[in-house]
Design a protein around this nucleic acid. Structure first.
Lengths: 164, 164
DNA sequence: GATGAAAGGACTAAACC
DNA sequence: GGTTTAGTCCTTTCATC
């Protein structure tokens, strides 16, 4: 049985917001914040986990302080799917890897120590196909909180004239 | 006082690995896993948080199950910095936003409900400058665990001949 | 850094609305 | 679906080795 967005009420939305902000708060504290008793939130969180709405909980680390001076986005052109997947698996510097539509087949986010390290990683992918590397200068937004989608919130690209 | 990577020992590495895998384990359990007493791990985690190595803890949610059928990467060309930042701030669909080097100035990761919604979001950025949108078909790796950088682990791009 | 003790708070399961 | 209660476990802080 798949979870429908409509199954998620206002309490679930608040719970998801709080846990995306701080995943280590206790169930008692979470209950206080969303105005539910502790057993009630515990049960809701358990269901959100079971339904796969919450996939897990992760510590967010500072790449810079872990010794990775450079973050980069590498776009990888068309290449044999299995070979790219295998190369990604062999490359721990790849933090995120998406197979995408368009001229580039893959978009990789990598964390490397310095330029020499960047060269070493990018070269591995250059051998397969053409690549394009962009170094991250600045992060405007990271891991934004995502709430259940509500169609009412969409602002149409071109506003319809409402004859008034 | 900034943290140096050299300050992090093998225990810190294990702690960071465990907390990136599951941020909600108790300190007692974390202690068991890394073979330290509970007060010892608690103190180490506190220091990692204070030093900014651990930036926080987040629940990872499933965009699909929250009603976002499409994930996409939008590359945004050269445009006035402040205007792009302002537009990102006004666009909750943007999950990650990086200012990068290269022809594209910005790389945005967005989560949208459907094609109509995608159109609405992309159009907002098209007004500023040229954009290029790639829809995510498949995720090969997501939020890989990142451990303290160790230069010894780097494999040089071109292996040096060691005259032997 | 480990161990042990004590107080406070959090979790679990049950009974109940 | 929700709350309350009671028992158990975890966490925190202290002291000591």
């Amino acid at each position: 049985m798949a979870t429908e967005v409509s199954d998620l009420d206002v309490y679930d939305g608040r719970i998801l917001a709080e846990l995306q902000r701080d995943a280590r708060i206790t169930m008692a504290e979470l209950g206080r914040r969303v105005h539910l008793s502790q057993p009630a939130v515990t049960e809701r969180v358990r269901k959100l986990e079971l339904n796969g709405v919450i996939k897990g909980y992760r510590a967010v680390v500072d790449y810079q302080r872990l010794g990775y001076g450079i973050r980069a986005v590498v776009r990888v052109g068309r290449a044999e799917y299995a070979r790219v997947v295998k190369l990604i698996e062999q490359t721990p510097e790849v933090v995120n890897a998406w197979n995408v539509t368009g001229e580039d087949s893959w978009i990789l986010e990598i964390a490397v120590i310095d330029v020499e390290h960047l060269d070493a990683v990018v070269t591995k992918f250059c051998i397969l196909t053409e690549t394009s590397t962009s170094i991250v200068l600045n992060v405007a937004r990271e891991h934004a909180e995502v709430l259940p989608a509500r169609r009412e919130n969409i602002k149409p690209a071109i506003k319809k004239v409402t004859g008034r």
